[in-house]
Write a protein that binds this DNA or RNA. Structure first.
Length: 762
DNA sequence: CTCCTATAGCTTTTT
DNA sequence: GCTATAGGAG
């Protein structure tokens, strides 16, 4: 039993064994953070602490599941099962369901996802007759979300001059009013959004000291993973719960704080010592994941940030390869370069596809990478973007479940009252919504009110509405009689959804049917698993689990041994032998949204740090000189972040960083950020080796500005990469003149003459 | 009321 | 390039 401590280094061992009192574990990238957390919990359990007295909070369901698995392996599944381990949202939604009555919510409250929230905001904006161009649902929601995470109620919002000024400044002075109505709507519908799960937990603990005490008592030990990414709401929950026993252990890395956009406060980790003056500090600085080159390069990046806890991350592994910088002519070519390189590396090193990851800043970049891989017949899996649970047919069926569980769930009702079509159209719904708005009731309350006949519907409409409500009520009758799976099947059948897809013989229709069947199978699996564990498994429980799932969490067997494509955000906590960071261009990464402020830029830099530190053996960074944005061609420069890496760790491929090698002395700082701090321990030396592919870049072939005017339709030209081709047409004015060229070997390309190095042959 | 087509507007990052 | 919406015909 004691052997679980073996193989830990002294710092790790300290962090595992010092279980009493407040602890701050600063864990550098790849330093075995998860290992310390699991061992610490396993250690507590072996010492005889009851599992239900341990609360372990993670950021993803996946992290929780993995940790639970590892702990199970040490102490046995029967014990690990009773740990309170999960995401903040999952754990506290469970507690809220138990205590919901105290807050005036039904215990069958349902959860709005981001889309539901946006839809609700949209209809509020419409009701208030505000300009929907100005009050964009996404923007309003992020204001509301920000307020909730700071525990600001609508009333407090009105008195908050900073927020009100900001809204006035962005010409949206009525956000506070939308917020107030939004809160009312949610309450009358008996729903909570993601932020409510945390906010209401705070309210619960504030207004019901007895409840707080109960949980304070229960949780002898509290552990928080990724503490640098907690927001104020989460921070306060932890603080309150830990007040009694003070056995709180937070683990994190300020250098990897990348979620401030959703309210995360890096200060939480920076000021832990102020909250718990008698805290113990453990620093995990040895990186076991990556080679020296990768760790050193990453350090040279992160050291440019100002606000951080000092630490020296080091590696004792071999030197390893340098970080490679690839320059691509276009976004499509970038994809091809990466796909080719993965193919070659995989052949040469006998590596598996699952050893490779392609990381990008925005989900929109995935498609091009996907196409490049598909062309080479390489297996891949994409995380993010369209997840299973975001497909329309799945959301629709889930909306039925929600409505059956909680008929006041207005967004669920609106979603499916006419799906499949049953002749209840917009006009009818507008009337009902107006009536509901005026009376402060939910849509369902109007529909089931005998006074429905007085609103002025014809008898046909009334009949249709009655049929609908009776159907839902019928399902509701089964709720306490049948297990989740059986009800789900009955709903899929009775709602007409199954039939709807069965009669749709198109390929899409068939795949939708398959998805519906897969969801039903999922419910079966869920029920079986839960009943084995002796836990609840009715439809409410399934809905709760599903509402808090992300597609990160749906790891299927058929997804084994595939190249992984994901955003850098979702890659946090993961590792791969070979990592390709693509689209590393100014205006994409760092994102233009973040480029204005030092704070924003530092967060982007941390994100870049996270990207680089995912790799065990090789990091490849690439950028494209031109790419399509919103379907328009646009031009980009390599990201400033590339220039920020200490050049001694780089290997420049091809013509990457043009104008940087030869003309270096003229503008040595062109890649350095304005905000780079002078105390940087790594003095960037610019004498990197330029590794040319042998093809000399001719200086007489440069097309720029007016020279483009000489190019005419029908001319034969030579391109340094694509070879010989024929000009099909020339459009636009310098400096944005474009030519379409049909190359003998590379096919048809659109070239921007400002960039393309073309030589006229005839 | 339903379905189809045209077009506006859009992208950070996610529990 | 893609999706969500508006507007028009049936």
């Amino acid at each position: 039993m004691q052997d679980y401590l073996e193989g830990l280094n002294p710092a790790q061992k300290e962090a595992v064994l010092n279980t009493e009192g407040p602890s701050l574990v600063i864990a550098g990238a790849g330093s075995g953070k998860t290992r310390v957390l699991t061992m610490r919990i396993a250690h507590l359990l072996t010492k005889g602490v009851a599992p239900y007295r341990i609360l372990a909070l993670t950021f993803t369901n996946k992290a929780a599941r993995e940790m639970k698995g590892r702990i199970s392996a040490i102490v046995g599944e029967g014990i690990a099962r009773h740990l309170w381990m999960g995401t903040f949202h999952a754990i506290f939604s469970k507690i809220l369901r138990i205590e919901s009555k105290k807050l005036g919510y039904p215990s069958s409250y349902t959860i709005y996802d981001t889309q539901d929230s946006k839809n609700l905001i949209k209809s509020i904006v419409k009701n208030m007759k505000l300009d929907s161009k100005l009050y964009k649902p996404g923007e309003v929601l992020s204001r509301i979300s920000g307020a909730k995470n700071d525990l600001i109620t609508p009333q407090a919002y009105r008195n908050d001059t900073k927020r009100m000024d900001a809204d006035r400044f962005s010409r949206k002075p009525l956000v506070h009013e939308i917020y107030a109505r939004y809160v009312n709507e949610c309450r009358k519908s008996g729903v909570m959004d993601f932020d409510d799960l945390l906010l209401n937990t705070n309210i619960l603990f504030r207004d019901h000291p007895d409840v707080l005490e109960k949980y304070q008592d229960q949780f002898d030990y509290i552990l928080v993973d990724e503490y640098q990414d907690t927001n104020l709401s989460q921070y306060l929950i932890v603080k309150k719960l830990a007040e009694r026993h003070k056995n709180v252990c937070v683990v994190g890395d300020d250098a990897q704080s990348i979620y401030s956009f959703r309210g995360a406060k890096i200060e939480n980790i920076l000021s832990f010592r102020n909250d718990y003056p008698d805290y113990k500090l453990f620093k995990l600085e040895q990186n076991y994941r990556s080679t020296k080159n990768i760790v050193n390069a990453a350090n040279s990046i992160i050291h440019r940030n100002s606000n951080q806890i000092h630490k020296t991350v080091f590696s004792e592994k071999e030197e390893g390869n340098r970080i490679r910088i690839f320059s691509a002519y276009s976004d499509v070519e970038e994809g091809i370069i990466v796909a080719n390189d993965i193919f070659e590396t995989q052949m040469r090193s006998q590596a598996a596809y699952e050893d490779f990851a392609i990381l990008y800043r925005t989900n929109a970049q995935s498609r091009i990478m996907e196409e490049a891989l598909r062309k080479k017949n390489m297996p891949y899996k994409i995380y993010g973007g369209f997840s299973f649970y975001q497909r329309k047919e799945i959301k629709d069926l889930l909306a039925y479940f929600r409505l059956v569980v909680n008929p006041n769930d207005d967004e669920a009702l609106k979603r499916i009252i006419n799906y499949p079509a049953r002749g209840i159209g917009k006009t009818t719904m507008d009337k009902i919504e107006l009536f509901a708005g005026n009376t402060g009731r939910s849509l369902w309350a109007i529909l089931t009110n005998p006074a429905l006949n007085n609103i002025g519907f014809n008898s046909g409409t009334i009949k249709k509405l009655k049929a609908f409500t009776e159907m839902i009520l019928g399902f509701g009758q089964l709720l306490n009689k049948l297990p989740a799976y059986d009800i789900a099947v009955k709903i899929a059948e009775g709602s007409g959804m199954r039939k709807f897809f069965q009669t749709d013989t198109s390929i899409e229709g068939q795949s939708k049917l398959e998805n519906v069947e897969e969801l039903l199978n999922g419910i079966k699996e869920f029920s079986d698993e839960r009943s084995e564990e002796g836990k609840e498994y009715n439809l409410v429980d399934f809905l709760e689990e599903v509402s808090l799932l992300t597609d990160q969490d749906t790891d299927k067997d058929e997804d084994k041994n595939k190249v992984t494509l994901m955003t850098i955000h979702s890659a946090k906590g993961l590792e791969f032998k070979y990592v390709y960071v693509v689209g590393v261009e100014d205006g994409l990464f760092p994102s233009p949204m973040a480029m204005e402020s030092q704070k924003g830029l530092e967060e982007e830099r941390r994100l870049f740090y996270v990207a680089v530190t995912r790799a065990k053996e090789q990091v490849s960074i690439s950028y494209a000189k031109q790419r399509y944005k919103y379907g328009e061609l646009s031009f980009s420069k390599p990201s400033r972040f590339i220039g920020e890496i200490d050049q001694q760790y780089l290997e420049i491929k091809g013509d990457a960083l043009p104008g940087f090698g030869q003309k270096r002395s003229a503008r040595p700082n062109s890649f350095r950020t304005r905000n780079s701090i002078s105390s940087s321990p790594s003095k960037p030396s610019f004498n990197y080796k330029k590794i040319s592919k042998g093809q000399a870049t001719s200086n007489s072939t440069d097309f720029s500005g007016t020279a483009a005017g000489r190019l005419k339709e029908g001319m034969l030209v030579l391109h340094e990469r694509f070879g010989r081709g024929k000009v099909l047409n020339v459009t636009g004015e310098a400096p944005n003149a474009k030519a379409t060229v049909l190359f003998d070997n590379a096919g048809q390309k659109q070239l921007l003459l400002k960039f393309a190095k073309l030589k006229i042959l005839n």
